[in-house]
Every structure is written in structure tokens, then in C-alpha cells.
């Protein structure tokens, strides 16, 4: 049974998107991506080191022809910087599918939603297909969708915190209200967190630190792959109702 999902007309099998930051080296990063089964990786756009142009590059280890590079505006704190970064990313990579995040402050890395909305509008007008990092607020999610977001990416918890999905109610409300894919972006710490996101009906999960900072990143990447698949299956299967008290699984009739 094939379970696929689409964003802006592009179809993927894997519902796990992984970052490419914080790894020990490119080899470990590439091995983790392979173990995760991810078909999309997020990448950052940064200045070339002009004093050492022969330094190894990410593209030497993770082939952009095989894995979709999703340029990300991590580190941008206003709409202008984010837009400028993605214009460069489009020129460097040649594709329009991008991930927008406009941060509000360094301490929490919470998004600045006013700037995020402004940037989404500009990018959509310029032909970009922005997947947008946002607060877990169903109203903000609708506003982003109206502004041209092709995917809504609410945080489960602060970026890099590993605290797991803090508000299942708002994530579920966003999923129910959205007509574009919803992917939890940030906050996942371990496999069960990814499963929770998928059980809430999300179309996918994006993570980086949970894999990169695990003691064995490649093994955690595999765990995340399985967790995303398990959570998705559980969502599709439809979970049992919850009861306040016990209900025996064995028949009461015929007891000796």
C-alpha cells in the first residue's frame, strides 16, 4: 500500500524531512539521511569561504539530483533578509520550493509572524513555493495559507529543544483547518514525538537536532523513519476510543 503526499504538485513517499546541520562530518550526515529515508533535506545559504574554495561542500556528499534540497532561511530575523536569502537560493539551486522562517528572537527562536506573513506574500508573488515555519496557532496558519504558503510548518516546541509536541490541541486544529500540508517543524526530541505528530494527522515532520545530537545519529535516523511510518499508520488506522476505567480483553463468559 503506497502512502504518498504532495506539496505544491511535487509528490514524495517519505514524510520525514531532515536537516543537515550539527553533524560531526559530511559522511555521518549523508549516512543519517540515507537511514532516515528522507527525500527532502533542509539546507542553509551562506557565504562561500573565498579563502578556502576547495573545502568540501555539502553537495559533494548529498546529491541534489537524488535528494530535494529545501533551502531554509534559518538565521534571518526580518522579511527582507529572508527574501534576499531565498532569491539567492533559487539562483544557486534552480528551484522554487523553499522553506521560510523569520525568527523573532534568539532565546526562543520563535517566529516573528508579522514579518513571516509579509515575506510569504512577497515570495508567493515572485513565484516561490514557500513552506512556512510558524507558531502553533490555527488562525495564523490560515493567514499564511491565504498569503500563499504551500505548506504550514508549526513548531512542536522551540527549535533544538527536543521537548516534543507541547500542544497537541493546536496542532490538531491546524491540521483540521488547513487545505495545504501541515508538517511539524522543530521540537521533536525522540521517536515517540515524531509518532505523536503523525498520529495528530500531520502530513510530515521536519527535524534536525533530534537526529544530529543523538549518540548514534544514524540509528536515530532509522528510528525516526519507523516512528513517522508508525504514527502515520496509526492515524490512518483510527485509534480506539479512550476510557476512564479498565475494560477486559478476554471474555467474561466461561470463566472457571
Amino acid at each position: 500500500m503506497t502512502d504518498i503526499w504532495s506539496v505544491a504538485g511535487r509528490t514524495f513517499r517519505s514524510r520525514l524531512i531532515v536537516g543537515t546541520g550539527k553533524y560531526k562530518d559530511f559522511e555521518q550526515n549523508a549516512a543519517a539521511v540515507a537511514a532516515s529515508g528522507a527525500e527532502i533535506v533542509t539546507v542553509a545559504v551562506r557565504r562561500v569561504n573565498v579563502s578556502d574554495p576547495t573545502a568540501p561542500m555539502l553537495t559533494d556528499y548529498i546529491d541534489p539530483k537524488k535528494v530535494t534540497y529545501l533551502p531554509n532561511t534559518a538565521g534571518c530575523f526580518n522579511a527582507d533578509d529572508a527574501i534576499r536569502t531565498l532569491r539567492l537560493a533559487r539562483e544557486a539551486g534552480g528551484w522554487d520550493l523553499v522553506k521560510l522562517e523569520v525568527l523573532g528572537e534568539a532565546k526562543t527562536l520563535y517566529p516573528n509572524m508579522r514579518e513571516t506573513l509579509d515575506a510569504t506574500e512577497v515570495l508567493a508573488k515572485e513565484g516561490f513555493l514557500p513552506m512556512v515555519y510558524c507558531v502553533d496557532d490555527p488562525i495564523a496558519a490560515k493567514q499564511l495559507e491565504d498569503a500563499g504558503a504551500v505548506a504550514i510548518m508549526p513548531l512542536g516546541a522551540p527549535i533544538g529543544s527536543g521537548l516534543g509536541i507541547q500542544n497537541r490541541v493546536t496542532i490538531r486544529l491546524i491540521v483540521e483547518g488547513a487545505s495545504v500540508p501541515v508538517l511539524v517543524d522543530a521540537g521533536v526530541g525522540t521517536a515517540s514525538d515524531a509518532a505523536v505528530a503523525m498520529e495528530l494527522g500531520c502530513d510530515g515532520v521536519l527535524m534536525n537536532t533530534a537526529i544530529a545530537e543523538a549518540k548514534d545519529p544514524v540509528r536515530m535516523a532509522r528510528a525516526m523513519k519507523l516512528a513517522v511510518e508508525a504514527g502515520r499508520d496509526a492515524y490512518l488506522a483510527g485509534r480506539m476510543g479512550q476510557r476512564r476505567y479498565a475494560d477486559p480483553s478476554s471474555p467474561l463468559a466461561g470463566l472457571i
Binding site: Y23, V48, A74, M207
Partner: peptide, 11 residues
């Protein structure tokens, strides 16, 4: 002039 490329990055 700004000359940029893709580097590892996350969320």
C-alpha cells in the same frame, strides 16, 4: 558582491 552556496542547516 555576495557569493553564496548551500551549507548544512536545519530548522
Amino acid at each position: 558582491l555576495e557569493i553564496v552556496h548551500f551549507v548544512g542547516g536545519g530548522c
